[in-house]
Amino acid sequence: MKIVVCVKHVPDATADRTFTEDGNTDRESVDSLLSELDEYAVEQALRVAESGVDADITYLTIGPDDAKDALRKALAMGGDSAVHVSDEDIEGSDAFGTSLVLARAIERHGFDLVVCGMASTDGTMGVVPALLAERLGVPAVTHLDELAIEDGAVTGRREGDSATVRVQGTLPAVVSVTDRSGDARYPSFKGIMAAKKKPLETLDLADLGIAPEQVGRTGARSAVDTAAKRPPRTQGEIVADDGAGGVGLATFLTAKKFI
């Protein structure tokens, strides 16, 4: 079974993330890493491979040069090879551009199963997996807390907008998994050493037959007008409980008319 795992290299969420002047995520001033939510996708792919299915796992990322770090981290967790799509013209792509590039790269490689995270930690749209499925013409079994691959189908549990549903789609399919699907493993020292020798292929738009104007800022179908930092919250009154902390809090809440 050919498994492709889509992983994104994102600015560290615990650092101060900002925008560039033209309204894109600033990738220079903050360290980037493998999106934590995509670690769950890596973990699920590895578990499928460990469940006795004869699987070949390839990681796929779109991003600037250092996005390779995300691929190496994933390879250190396990898996076989990686594909890095890098092209200046991709910068500024929206979810449509991103999903186009990912879909072409996935078709080129071949697939039975595509595994994604539930959302990227910087964009947080959570729509790329569904767009991939739409483009590839296969089922989108997304947002799974739990999944199983059996008899050529993927079955899983999903917390939807107003109900928890059990869902099933036949392979080939695109799945996305949540942060409840199972803790991701840490790379071992052996894994980190082995990752350095695993094949990593780099592709550009021409390799995928995509014209530059289909992606990037030119291809984007929405535009940011303004991006303003919210004024940081200011700390109010902090009191140590001297035995009447609850009463003091009640006084504050009464003054604010919550009581």
Binding site: G236, I238, V239, D241, G245, L249, L253
Partner: peptide, 27 residues
């Protein structure tokens, strides 16, 4: 606490029940 408009440094098992009692008393 950095973003709190009001904060109590204390044990929630003491502060919360006292707050409930005080809300009921005030009402």
């Amino acid at each position: 606490f950095d973003l709190a408009d009001y904060g109590v440094v204390g044990d929630l098992f003491k502060v919360l029940p006292q707050l409930v009692e005080e809300i009921e008393r005030r009402r």
